[in-house]
Design a protein around this nucleic acid. Structure first.
Lengths: 144, 144
DNA sequence: ATTATTTATGATAATTTTGTCCGAATTAAG
DNA sequence: CTTAATTCGGACAAAATTATCATAAATAAT
């Protein structure tokens, strides 16, 4: 469904959000360890998310990644997915046709728009706060 | 969403179904041309589908691929997807966790099962006949 | 100022997916 | 029986994705 990069991006963002709620700034190493991802690869993804203003990064000692508390609730899964995978999930044809739309649909177009729209809604309606909250109370997990 | 292999598999199967409804057996070359796919790569996918008894292939002059008319209605999209991509679409975790289930869910697990189940239903409810019918009346397209 | 710590960046490597090539096997037709 | 048409199968190649490594840049603390 999502690329590895996107999976790591979501997991990292969720972990950073959880720590940011306690006003903790977290380092790349801590993040990679906690979400079980390759460190250097994760660095690039975090950088990508920082460039897209989804999280904020600072260099130097006591640096690391954080999300301003006020925005944890407003950042949606869709923002993260878009920053990493672009709009391909929403826009691209289920059968890979270049031009596929209601006017000139591929054989599965009409069936796909339904699913895709629900996915879109779900991503747009799910905030980082919601995901972090599940982690905090131990109902959900980022590893294993 | 699907792999390229799977996209080609679905398009090829749909085209073969359409021709099979007119009792025409079609060659690899014709298929690749009609669905706009790389010929040799398509051959492997068709072979895979033949091994899984989704279509039937014969070598030699006037050989090619065909689907017994009686089965065009019973073959579902889910069968094709499963033959090529396996059950990863239905089973794998949205965030790539090895073990992710209702007992030990990832942060997006509960939201994902809903979408995934709808996708599953859709694939299981969509027959090759239905897809071929749309093609036949010119309502849907396999290229562009 | 120097040092230690941390992210940023570019080069490179490994892996997976996608795609190509070519000869073998099969079969229908002459 | 020979030939031509076709799928089958394996080796190979190219491209995309994922992952690693080394070094630069920034910054806080001393």
């Amino acid at each position: 469904m999502f690329s590895k990069a996107c999976e790591y991006g979501i997991k990292a963002s969720t972990y950073i959000a959880l720590q940011s709620l306690q006003d903790r700034r977290v380092s790349l190493n801590e993040i990679a360890k906690e979400i079980g991802s390759p460190t250097a690869f994760t660095a690039k993804i975090l950088h990508q998310l920082a460039k897209n203003h989804i999280l904020d990064s600072t260099k130097g000692p006591a640096g690391g990644f954080q999300i301003p508390e006020a925005r944890i609730d407003t950042i949606k899964l869709s923002d993260i997915v878009f920053a990493i995978d672009g709009d391909s999930i929403y826009e691209s044809c289920g059968l890979g046709l270049d031009k596929c739309n209601a006017n000139k649909p591929c054989p599965v177009h009409n069936k796909f728009v339904v699913i895709r729209d629900e996915l879109k809604q779900m991503l747009q309606n799910t905030s980082l706060f919601e995901l972090a909250a599940g982690l905090e109370v131990g109902r959900t997990y980022l590893k294993r």
